[in-house]
Design a protein around this nucleic acid. Structure first.
Length: 565
RNA sequence: AGGGGUGUAGCCAAGCGGUAAGGCACUGGAUUUUGAUUCCAGCAUGCGUAGGUUCAAAUCCUGCCACCCCUGCCA
């Protein structure tokens, strides 16, 4: 069984119920092409959670050789702004998804949707209601009681059509009338109790300006847009489950075609310990707590990108969570971090950077000598780069100890350690300053132990990284902690329960320090990703200048050192 | 006269009548010139609960329980 695009359906292995359903639809002749849509409302930035929606919509279509339309779902002029559309395009491009088409619903479909509304009026499926918002609410009934029919429910189609056209032409004040679907005021599903299709609001729209004073509402406009676009599977999150019957009602009564788009729902991801919510993040941006919507501590796609996460990691993560069975699924942040490390381990170039330097003098060596460092030990094709060993080097303070804990296999007085890519050195003396702190180390190098040509037979347990004084430069390092304190597993919930946002924030979530990097890093460009060996993954920040390279700490390496075991 | 969902390990999640996949986390151990990576091993006598059907039940039936969502002219 083949699709029109040549893909053999029998060769497709379904990975969830939706895909099983799609295959059945294709075999039954109900689906000719898989068309999905990506319908953001341009009212804020995208989070990691959105990446799940886009990944599911794009990859489901891709799997069946279909297409995905990017459609700005912009039917509410008070919430929407043009600037966001551009950021979505950039996010989508970053994620690697290419829409088959890009439209603003307001421009592309509102004329057609208006015509559908008129047709529904003529069919007796919609009526103009003059109840106020409060009255509509009061007559809707409750969770357990039926609603009451609007007194305007039984107007004739002619009367409704005349009134509706007058609404459109601006004859009535904002909020004075609505167009409502004539469904069932006693339906057990409240969404079916004559939902509003159009409201009156004189509001300037970022795309269509003042063309309209009436605006179609989600329950009506969304299924109609899907139909107009040829969407076959409208994949949204489970928050819309209750709206599925409304969707189907509008498809049947507004569109009327036998082969209709299907709405199917997946679960939302809630990352533990992560604050989301436009309202809250906006507070942090406006309050100066963060540098902007792309702050590396933010869960926005632009934020994690700046932090150094890769698109692959984000996509692999959302796919690992799966379709989901409940409305929200809470996932520990470590689950995301796993995929970040996994990808970075494969692609990040290794470099030596000393974050907290301790000077070491090699007493039996003079001048300097070239050594080589693998760019990625897991990928030979990544090649090698040169670095220098000399008589004055720097190592991490934590790689030397006067009182070493058990199993400490770094440098101690009288002990030896391997310098990565260079020689084994032996520490003869820790030279203290007048405060009793370590000023520098006096060491000797062991000839015949050079990396790659060691014939000394000396066994050395530890290997540490270093930079040579004549081969390093100062860089700025930005280290991040979670924005919110660890005790807030579900920050948005805590906020709703009355916790103050200021009390929730971790006081030192951003710290800036300097470090000594090997010269190899001098040409690094924003978004370049490195592994600072034995420390973590770092990504060049866009704030960098020619004289000041800034690295964002993306994520640390795992640390398996357990001194007390 | 409520409706819609969901219950499988600390967190996700397969499973669709044949005797509990996989991943994260965690714990051992091997390899390692990154205490990383990689590798290997361990991790539910148990599938919300009580019954029933069956040679056989997480899967089918019945009752009960728990949790989530829904009363915008937001999407």
């Amino acid at each position: 069984m083949k699709l029109a695009n040549g893909i053999d359906v029998d060769s497709i292995v379904p990975e969830n119920e939706l895909e099983e359903e799609i295959i059945a639809d294709i075999k039954a002749g109900r689906t000719k092409e898989v068309v999905t849509r990506c319908p953001p409302e341009p009212s804020g930035y995208w989070y990691i959670g959105h990446a799940k929606a886009w990944t599911i919509n794009f990859e489901t279509a891709q799997k069946f050789g279909g297409r995905t339309v990017l459609r700005m779902d912009d039917s509410n002029p008070v919430k929407e702004e043009g600037e966001f559309a551009d950021s979505y395009m950039a996010d989508l491009e970053w994620l690697g998804f290419k829409p088959a088409k890009f439209v603003y619903a307001s421009e592309a479909y509102f004329d057609e949707i208006y015509k559908i509304a008129e047709k529904m009026i003529q069919n007796g499926d919609a009526y103009v209601c003059e109840l106020s918002a409060e009255e509509v609410s009061a007559t809707r009934g409750t969770l357990t009681e039926p609603g009451k029919n609007s007194p305007y429910r039984n107007r004739t189609p002619e009367e409704n059509l005349k009134l509706f056209r007058e609404m459109r032409d601006g004859k009535y004040p904002d909020g004075s009338k609505t167009l409502r679907a004539k469904i069932d005021m006693s339906h057990p599903n409240i969404n079916m109790r004559d939902p509003v299709m159009y409201k009156i609001a004189r509001q300037h729209h970022y795309r269509v300006g003042d063309k309209w004073c009436i605006w179609p509402q989600y329950d009506f406009v969304h299924p109609m847009e899907d139909c107009l676009e040829g969407t076959t599977y409208s994949l949204c999150d489970k928050g819309f489950q209750d709206h599925r019957v409304v969707y189907e009602w509008f498809v049947e009564h507004g569109w009327g075609k036998k082969y209709a788009p299907k709405q199917r729902e997946f679960s939302r991801i809630v990352l533990e310990n992560v604050l989301t919510g436009k309202r809250y993040l906006k507070q942090l941006v406006n309050g100066g707590y963060v540098s902007g919507w792309d702050d590396p501590r933010f869960p926005t796609l632009v934020g994690v990108r700046r932090r150094g996460y890769t698109a692959k990691a984000v996509k692999d993560f959302v796919k690992s969570v799966g379709w989901g069975s409940t409305i929200e699924v809470s996932v520990p942040y470590s689950a995301l971090e796993y995929y970040v490390r996994e990808d970075l381990n494969k692609i990040a170039t290794r470099a030596m950077v000393v974050l907290d330097p301790l000077k070491v003098v090699i007493t039996n060596f003079s001048g300097s000598e070239e050594c080589e460092i693998e760019n990625n030990p897991n990928d030979e094709a990544a090649g090698k780069h040169k670095c220098l060993f000399s008589n004055e080097i720097y190592i991490e303070k934590e790689d030397f100890s006067l009182n070493p804990p058990p199993k400490y296999n770094r440098l101690v007085e009288g002990g030896i350690v391997r310098l990565k890519g260079a020689y084994i050195i032996k520490c003869n003396k820790a030279v203290l300053n007048k405060n009793g702190e370590i000023d520098h180390l006096e060491c000797e190098y062991l000839p015949n132990t050079k990396s790659g040509q060691d014939n000394s037979g000396i066994k050395c347990k530890g290997t540490i990284h270093f930079v040579s004084a004549n081969n390093c430069f100062k860089v700025t390092i930005r280290e991040f902690k979670n924005l919110v304190k660890d005790e807030y597993k579900f920050p948005a919930k805590a906020l709703a329960d009355g916790v103050k946002i200021e009390d929730m924030l971790q006081p030192d979530s951003l710290t800036e320090t300097t470090a000594l990097a090997e010269n190899f890093l001098k040409d690094a460009k924003p978004e370049d990703k490195f592994q600072f060996m034995r420390k973590g993954y770092y990504c060049v920040d866009k704030d960098s200048t020619p004289n000041n390279l800034i690295f964002n700490s993306t994520i640390s390496l795992k640390d398996g050192f357990k001194p007390n075991k």
